[in-house]
Design a protein around this nucleic acid. Structure first.
Lengths: 152, 152
DNA sequence: TACTGATAGTCAGCATACTGAGCAATATCC
DNA sequence: GGATATTGCTCAGTATGCTGACTATCAGTA
């Protein structure tokens, strides 16, 4: 009988669970109310001004039906704006607001601290190894989920 | 500016996302409708007959409020039974049914195939390394989530 | 034994994720 | 140019996961 600890799927779930908890704790302590998912979306919108929702979803590997709610909440918080595209009337262009930019700047230290804490049981080299192996496994499995990563 | 690919949190989410998709695809192809979470609960109930919900949650690191719904669905599918404990009237004892045992036996190949597929980009040694590093990081972060792993 | 604190379970509410369906608009092909 | 396919987005429904609150019960102690 295989143990849970021999199942990559179980380890994946557990590591993700801890990663989210650490992120929320660090960001919360810093005085912000932003989830890991919202943070990634916000940072990606800042780096790609005016992108549409499908492109955003592709850049961070979110499902297109998930991104709708995430964007709703970022708009609600005043961190981004969503407006109709002039070129394609189906699409919505996303833009970060000044408030969003400020939030992103102030929250960065907490986010980076969180990334450290997630790996606190590992040496620097082990942390690098873990990230390298994850990247490799993810690259090989990219097309297996409904929301694969898509380059711009 | 740090890239998403340098963030262990982002890699964790992505790997977990692929792991779930692979699991559901393999198990679905085998003709079963069981999630990774339901599978782990079912297997743990089989291995620990009569355990209560809190103990089960601790063994697989689920939140106690999440386990309620998972158990509801396993009961609904006829794979387990939930009955009041005679020793502690607050607690519910969980028992696998014959149907649950049959299901577990028949889906095991699909589950194991899924674990292979998740790691298909890695060599055998790399897969082992990845699991070892995940186990180590998880052990160090165990207490950081609301639902830590608890030994029996 | 009565009080107090801890524990088992549930519930409401919110935030991902996904399936599948649908609408509107754009692209493509004949 | 018009039928057809595709694309961007949304919605309803289901399944984790979590926070925080609540009930019922149990355990320890004054």
């Amino acid at each position: 009988m295989k143990d849970n600890n021999d199942m990559p799927g179980h380890l994946a779930r557990r590591f993700q669970q801890i990663a989210v908890a650490v992120f929320l704790a660090e960001v919360g302590d810093a005085g912000f109310d932003l989830t890991p998912v919202q943070y990634a979306a916000l940072a990606t919108i800042k780096a790609n001004p005016g992108l549409d929702q499908v492109t955003l979803a592709g850049l961070i590997a979110y499902d297109r039906t998930t991104i709708t709610g995430v964007i709703d909440r970022l708009v609600q918080k005043g961190l981004i704006e969503r407006r109709a595209s002039s070129r394609d009337r189906r699409a919505r262009e996303l833009e970060i607001t000044d408030e969003g930019r400020r939030t992103l700047r102030k929250i960065t230290p907490a986010v980076e601290a969180a990334q450290q804490i997630m790996l606190r049981g590992l040496s620097a080299k082990e942390g690098e190894d873990l990230m390298r192996l994850l990247r490799k496994a993810i690259a090989a499995g990219n097309e297996l989920s409904r929301a694969p990563l898509r380059e711009a």
